[in-house]
Write a protein that binds this DNA or RNA. Sequence first.
DNA 1: CATGAATGAGCTTTCATTCAT
DNA 2: TATGAATGAAAGCTCATTCAT
Lengths: 193, 193, 193, 193
Amino acid sequence: MDVFARKGFFLSKVSEIAEKAGVADGTIYLYFKNKDDLLISIFEEKMREINASFRDGLAQEPDALSRFRRFIRMHLEGFQSYPELASVFLVELRQSSRFMRDYKKVELENYLDLIGELVEQGQCEGVFRSDISVGLVKRLIFGTLDEVVSTWVLAGKPYELVALTEPVLDLLLHGIQKENDAIHKKPPEADVT
Amino acid sequence: MDVFARKGFFLSKVSEIAEKAGVADGTIYLYFKNKDDLLISIFEEKMREINASFRDGLAQEPDALSRFRRFIRMHLEGFQSYPELASVFLVELRQSSRFMRDYKKVELENYLDLIGELVEQGQCEGVFRSDISVGLVKRLIFGTLDEVVSTWVLAGKPYELVALTEPVLDLLLHGIQKENDAIHKKPPEADVT
Amino acid sequence: MDVFARKGFFLSKVSEIAEKAGVADGTIYLYFKNKDDLLISIFEEKMREINASFRDGLAQEPDALSRFRRFIRMHLEGFQSYPELASVFLVELRQSSRFMRDYKKVELENYLDLIGELVEQGQCEGVFRSDISVGLVKRLIFGTLDEVVSTWVLAGKPYELVALTEPVLDLLLHGIQKENDAIHKKPPEADVT
Amino acid sequence: MDVFARKGFFLSKVSEIAEKAGVADGTIYLYFKNKDDLLISIFEEKMREINASFRDGLAQEPDALSRFRRFIRMHLEGFQSYPELASVFLVELRQSSRFMRDYKKVELENYLDLIGELVEQGQCEGVFRSDISVGLVKRLIFGTLDEVVSTWVLAGKPYELVALTEPVLDLLLHGIQKENDAIHKKPPEADVT
DNA sequence: CATGAATGAGCTTTCATTCAT
DNA sequence: TATGAATGAAAGCTCATTCAT
């Protein structure tokens, strides 16, 4: 995964992966069908671990809001401690959908489902709006996290990714618009003076 | 661009692109330095057109909020009418940052700057919150749109992408949390007076 | 010829030759059958000029020995004033014998014949040994001049090539051995003491 | 080397060399960096062998003159028994100086040095003239041998190359001028006493 | 006569995959 | 089970040559 992440799928050579793994080229083919299978397998295995640990972590939180906060922190923490995964997660697997027709992405979808569940639970508990599509919210959340991590990676990881937990949470929860009810109701005459 | 979008950069063969373009393989190299240059050039050219038309469109809107709505609609409209661009935009160019070290992404950055300007104008006009980082908001917006389009493409474009304009706008503006936060905050009765 | 000399036959591009000549690529093919023909034609033409001027020059000399000296000086002068020719002369045409089966090398052989004539005249006049094969002497002379020029070119032309006229002439005339008659006759007894 | 010799560097196809060698195209690249490296490597290896065997052979000779004779015979014998080497030696490597800038020609220069040493030893022993430049003599010898072999190869090897040993030696030692110069010089009667 | 854009055959080189050991 | 030398298909790119203008 280190190699795939550093070079991308097509620029990664099987021989290089074998060398990094300390085995012979041929040995790879005793455990994986081909290069595609290699990428998918190691990614899915990693994702399985991640999904398990995420479910454990989330189970410890009492309510939907704190689970949501925890989810964002874990996502950012995860990529911060294992940035190599980010590239694969963000780019390779996305592209793979085009050339690996038979890849089912089981664990990747489990991860996305996790977000869906969080949203639904939040709606049940009455802390999240019910007038919005869960699918759309998943994309809002996943897209934003994606982009936050991606920017961080491309910029050379110049700051603590996890420190963005609260700002990101705030944005996702409240949006970017100024509380416009307040605007209608409390005119800013005091400021004008 | 059709070929790149359908197969991805590495699986696209120059000979296939030439065939689709109705020219001989060698002719490609009269106009482009190499395969990298080919992808970058056609992408940048398209982006230049898009940026120009976006600036035109936005200039017609009176205020930041309507400009923001217009931007989202144009983004979704654009990808809906030219889905081939989406794949390149979303995947190839992102990956390219790894193997095309010298690609400056001028027009792609112009596009991102456009979002930044929208946000700053909104803050100036007092319709967008000022307590949030412009950079982070750019990622919220760009990431969400990215993911919305991406999901739509991968799902086989089964609906009108542009129909998501208002829901997306709503989410970005107000967030996902139920407006019960008003409860925690200063109640508006004082303002009513 | 400049281009051929600088890059060699295979690395010279027809388009580059056309550019240097100030004509379009296609124009070349109005005057030459193909690239091979181009090299041969311009070389033979140049050689024809050279052969003519050599015959003129040699005709002015009274005897075989001074003609021989003049020949060597003209050869070195020629390459000194037109080093580009040297590369073609030395390398390209030699190689060409392999890929241009039908090249007759008329003028190149005229040049070699010139040396042969000089040697035969010298033998007639009694200044050159008659117990040696003319063919072999041609190779002695041509090979030596070849190597002298070649070394000079490869070394970056750091000295006056024509200044080697007398040393070369001396070597060719007298060989490298010390006058060994003297050795047989005057024993070195004085040194032994 | 057979292929390079028969066709020249540029007309030799790697696939043809591989076929002749009984291996797949790709196998070539397990042992050589590229086509240039292939030519240089096999040439240098052969030259190393030749240099070693030449030094062995020369070590057996008692004096400079017999070493010189031996050298010429070995040179002619060598090319006679391995004519393929000749073409590479004479043409390809000479041209290579132009397109293989980084080729150091270690063994080729060792060979040339061998001639230089022979000349210097001859001068020490008093059998070779001391009033001539060693560099120039190297070119006389190397150029002549070059041309002798080259003519033989281009003529289709119609005679025993090694039979030219004595005539060539004679020419190199005594030059082409008739020994009438003895007349001009101090007559040997004084020495006879 | 001259042009030069277009051609496309053919090259070197790479690298996923195999299989005898 | 592990190896890694060998494979050979396939790709990017070049450039001599053509021919409509």
